[in-house]
């Protein structure tokens, strides 16, 4: 167990070295989310109307955070496929190390990076006027929930990468998964304008639950709250969905890793 931890730690270190070697990569992963914060929070902020005094600026931040967490699917999937095709997965699998450490190393490293992105976004959000109103603990809980989502998305990405084993297919598929999850949710717009059937879908979309839950924890605007169970109880719903997802995806990814072979 401790060996698995130290192996994972060494592999996290490997990815941190990648970043240290190419700091511009860090810039690369931060630019888009920060641009989102500025465009949605600052530029659209005045045009979009949501009830309450915080306005769209407060409404949108949790949505953009969640969008960034969703993108972890692609990040991890592509990373895993690259390791597979570089032969590194073969190398690691032929070593007497615990089978879980390679995927744990990868997903934890990606979580560290997304934490960094989150921190920068939060700072920029703060500069343009976003505030959390429920004190430090609830705010941290909000970020914790978002990062848990990022972690779960990483494992989902690992599973997708190990199954599809091809960068193009992986990027295409994760795009197809992410679009409806992000846009059929309350991440960017309040749901009251939607036709009722679409609204029902969006309310049951787990991304909506995570977004609502973090809005609640941050004390930010919720927009109109729907009547569906997840909309009424976003925090327990979000936690349950994420934990169940991890419980399903982690063993599946582990199994896929055991059989992993590059596609040539």
């Amino acid at each position: 167990m401790t060996e698995a931890l130290s192996d994972s730690f060494a592999l996290v270190g490997r990815q941190m070295r990648h970043i240290r070697r190419m700091p511009e990569q860090l810039l690369g992963i931060t630019v888009m989310p920060v641009a989102f914060v500025i465009v949605f929070g600052y530029l659209f902020g005045s045009a979009m109307q949501v009830p309450g005094q915080g306005g769209y600026k407060e409404y949108i931040m949790a949505g953009i955070f969640a969008q960034v967490m969703l993108a972890n699917i692609t990040t991890t999937a592509v990373g895993v496929v690259n390791d597979l095709n570089n032969g590194l997965v073969d190398r690691f699998r032929a070593l007497p190390i615990s089978r879980s450490s390679v995927l744990i190393g990868r997903t934890v490293a990606d979580a560290v990076l997304v934490t960094w992105t989150c921190a920068v976004m939060a700072l920029v959000g703060f500069l343009i006027g976003w505030r959390a109103h429920n004190g430090i603990l609830q705010t941290l809980a909000g970020f914790g929930l978002l990062l848990l989502m990022g972690f779960a998305m990483s494992w989902l990405g690992a599973l997708i990468g190990l199954t599809l084993r091809n960068v193009e297919t992986v990027s295409a598929l994760s795009g197809v998964i992410m679009m409806p999850l992000a846009f059929l949710s309350n991440a960017f717009v309040p749901l009251d304008g939607l036709p009722s059937w679409l609204r029902a879908i969006a309310e049951w979309n787990p991304v909506s639950s995570v977004v609502s839950a973090s809005r609640e924890l941050f004390g930010n605007e919720q927009g109109a709250t729907g009547g569906a169970f997840p909309a009424q109880h976003p925090i327990p719903t979000a936690l349950t969905v994420l934990v169940v997802l991890l419980l399903v995806v982690v063993p599946l990814a582990g199994r896929a890793y055991q059989k992993a072979a590059a596609q040539r």
Partner: peptide
């Protein structure tokens, strides 16, 4: 020890 058909090196290390 295994040296596969395609060199397995981490290019960014």
């Amino acid at each position: 020890g295994l040296t596969g058909q395609y060199a397995a090196v981490d290019e960014r290390l």
